[in-house]
């Protein structure tokens, strides 16, 4: 497990993706700072006009911006690479020669992908918070309900939001893991995973498919705002966790079925 994480975070590609994610809050904060007049209420992405009051909101704005594409993109790359990457490098059969077993390999690969989800989300939130604090300073944060909380509690809320978004991405990681067992071409698995995440969001926009919406893994992706209400509304956190757990179970089982019956030739 430790070696798997070392491999994942030893790759220049992983760091490049995290850097790209870190660039989003930095760009937002610098743009707001340099613009001559502060953004008015309701302008630009949500939370943007609150950035100047409290730097922590840079992280929130960056999350809203990156949830539709950037986060699924990086998670798709990591999750799609899990099995197919080893297969394409020809290292998969060596891993399977070791007595670790296929199930364990699958679990280790998935946990590594999940750790990357957390790292990616934390990157956006923490870098956003740091940049925001540096450029705008800390102030009392206004929650969605209009109540004001101090810096300490707003930091706790920001971390909770990071956890929420990480959980949101676990389902997509499981889908990526399954797709990765289907092919030996990692790029194909990555692309398929990213495309699936976009398709899920497009389907979520179509009112005609309302019956399908509760089953889409992207259903609660923007629900993290419920953690910024006063008092905290845990309903969407619970719904989201249940939904993602369902995806992990289904696609984990599919990946298991596929991977343990697969002839590993490379």
């Amino acid at each position: 497990m430790r070696s798997e994480l070392r491999v994942l975070f030893g790759r220049p590609r992983t760091w490049a993706m995290l850097l790209a994610l870190a660039a989003i809050p930095i760009l937002i904060a610098v743009a707001v700072r340099l613009s001559s007049e502060p953004p008015g209420p309701g302008e630009g992405p949500p939370f943007l006009d609150r950035v100047t009051q409290n730097g922590l909101f840079v992280g929130m704005t960056a999350l809203v911006v990156s949830i539709p594409l950037f986060l699924p993109l990086t998670v798709g790359v990591v999750a799609g690479d899990t099995i197919a990457g080893e297969a394409s490098l020809g290292t998969l059969r060596y891993l399977l020669v070791a007595p670790a077993g296929r199930v364990r390999l699958l679990v280790v690969k998935y946990v590594a992908a999940a750790v990357f989800c957390l790292a990616a989300t934390l990157t956006v939130v923490v870098v956003g918070a740091l940049v925001g604090l540096a450029l705008f300073g800390a102030g009392p944060a206004t929650l969605l309900s209009g109540d004001t909380v101090g810096v300490g509690e707003s930091a706790v809320r920001a971390l909770l939001v990071a956890v929420y978004v990480t959980v949101s991405l676990l389902g997509l990681s499981a889908v990526g893991l399954f797709v990765s067992t289907l092919t030996e071409v990692p790029v194909g698995a990555m692309a398929a995973t990213v495309v699936l995440s976009v398709v899920a969001q497009v389907l979520g926009q179509l009112d005609q498919l309302a019956w399908l919406h509760p089953w889409l893994f992207s259903r609660h992706w923007l629900g993290f705002a419920d953690l910024l209400r006063q008092p905290v509304s845990w309903d969407s956190f619970g719904d989201n966790a249940l939904l993602q757990a369902g995806y992990v179970a289904v696609f984990g089982a599919l990946a298991y079925g596929r991977f343990v019956t697969k002839d590993v030739l490379s």
């Binding site: 969605l144 309900s145 209009g146």
Partner: peptide, 29 residues
């Protein structure tokens, strides 16, 4: 009363004779 919208919220708070309306997106009380 708190009306939830995606990434925003509208509130009505009544205490005694005093009533506040708050709209987070417009930031108006």
């Amino acid at each position: 009363v708190q009306v939830f919208d995606t990434l925003t919220e509208r509130d009505v708070v009544r205490r005694g004779d005093e009533v506040w309306l708050y709209d987070y997106e417009a930031n108006e009380a």
